[in-house]
Design a binder for these strands. Structure first.
Lengths: 247, 247
DNA sequence: GAGTGGTCTAGACCACGGT
DNA sequence: CCGTGGTCTAGACCACTCG
């Protein structure tokens, strides 16, 4: 018997459930199944891919573990939708001294277009000189500016990305990427360092020049692991901490 | 039919595979199955717990995901053994500027016994005043001191824990905990901050006083989520970065 | 009550590692 | 060769959600 999965996936050996998972991921990434929509049930998917329901289940459980879909007993399987809460929970690591998650308010300072330096091009895996949106903003936690950051996104990825300087940003950037451009951020890689605040950073954060601040380099990638955003953040860590759980 | 799992686990509802998983975890934690030993095969476990082989498999796969066991096709299922490599890979987050994992060498400076302050007691979830081992050491990466840290462990957890001051520590602490005391570290929670180096820290790391360094508070827990170790580290981040992957 | 995902079982066959 | 875990299937029953 010839499986739909085998036909589409080619010759390299992969377990059936992995092939099914890859096919579903591709359809979600391609926008055939949009965020918030319900997927066919397990038996329908099994019939469509010509595998058994148990195999589909294994693929779906793996996709749920990667937070690409959400499954609810009695309701169905849905393509995950980025909400501000979900994004904050998964991608925002700052907590208060009491270990409760901080709730940031973001305010844009400026937006312009720049060309990728050699370093930025390497990090974003685009050619040097590629046009990038550059958004400068700060984030307020518990009433005081606590993070100052610049966000770089290839213009080609999100042509008419625009934020209102001075405005409060109601949605997280990742919600905007998903809702406006269909790009779902699924992975991010961060590199942290302790540095002395430059004059600009110190001024924005209300610190003395040279104060120690936490510098975070982040590269965010979509479902297909394509680099979509580079972000450089400077955080006060006198009132907040960066939290990591190792398992 | 009455299941062994149901008998042992009591009345609160848990899926069978979760009960089986808990039972296996308990046996490993209690030392009935020691690190490095092979577990019975799936069918033997299924017979012992009076469930089907598929249910045992689900429990074992969950335990493998938590790195409590290691499964090898054709060989069997083994209780995970802490090796220096595994510990470094899972619990040591520093990487070089080229993103390659740093390979630290540890050297003990001193060991003494202290009593838990209110804060330390709270973090370790022990009564205030509890005796703690306090080990001070530094770690060398690429030839230069890069981390200075103090490690606190309740004396009751590891009565005769001892390190040779001045000696190079060949094994990671977590390997020592497991091999000498049967305590497997399974989780750790870290809080990071950027701080100015105190004179002591600056001297040990060869930095100017007040240089920005990365301060890491870590609480490590065993298989049963009991807090076993508190560690405060100060890291140079001019040549190395702290790496985080968000998924 | 109809439809969904969650759990559990039973059995077949395959791939791998050692004898 | 045998024993192990890995994959895949098929079907039963349960728990949850909603109309």
């Amino acid at each position: 018997m010839e499986n739909e999965a085998e036909k589409e996936a080619g010759a390299e050996f992969q377990p059936l459930y992995a092939q099914v998972k890859a096919l579903i991921t591709k359809r979600i990434g391609a926008g055939e199944w949009k965020p918030g929509t319900m997927l066919p049930n397990e038996f329908q998917l099994a019939a469509a891919f010509n595998v058994s329901q148990g195999t589909v289940r294994k693929a779906l459980m793996a996709l749920e573990a990667e937070r690409l879909i959400v499954r609810r007993q009695g309701r169905g399987t849905y393509v995950a939708r980025h909400t501000s809460e979900r994004t904050l929970f998964h991608f925002f690591r700052m907590v208060g001294m009491d270990d409760r998650p901080a709730e940031p308010i973001s305010r844009a300072l400026s937006q312009k277009t720049v060309t990728a330096t050699r370093e930025f091009a390497a990090r974003l895996e685009v050619p040097r000189g590629t046009p990038l949106h550059c958004i400068t903003r700060y984030r307020i936690m518990n009433g005081a500016p606590a993070i100052f950051e610049r966000i770089y996104v290839p213009v080609r990825c999100m042509p008419d990305l625009a934020v209102e300087p001075g405005s409060e940003m109601l949605d997280e950037m990742y919600v905007i990427y998903q809702e406006r451009f269909g790009t779902t951020i699924a992975h991010a890689s961060e590199r942290l360092a302790s540095v002395a605040a430059t004059d600009e950073v110190a001024r924005q954060l209300g610190l003395a020049g040279g104060s120690p601040v936490l510098q975070i380099f982040r590269v965010a990638r979509d479902v297909n692991r394509v680099a979509v955003e580079l972000r450089i953040s400077f955080c006060r860590t006198d009132l907040f901490r960066y939290a990591v759980e190792l398992n």
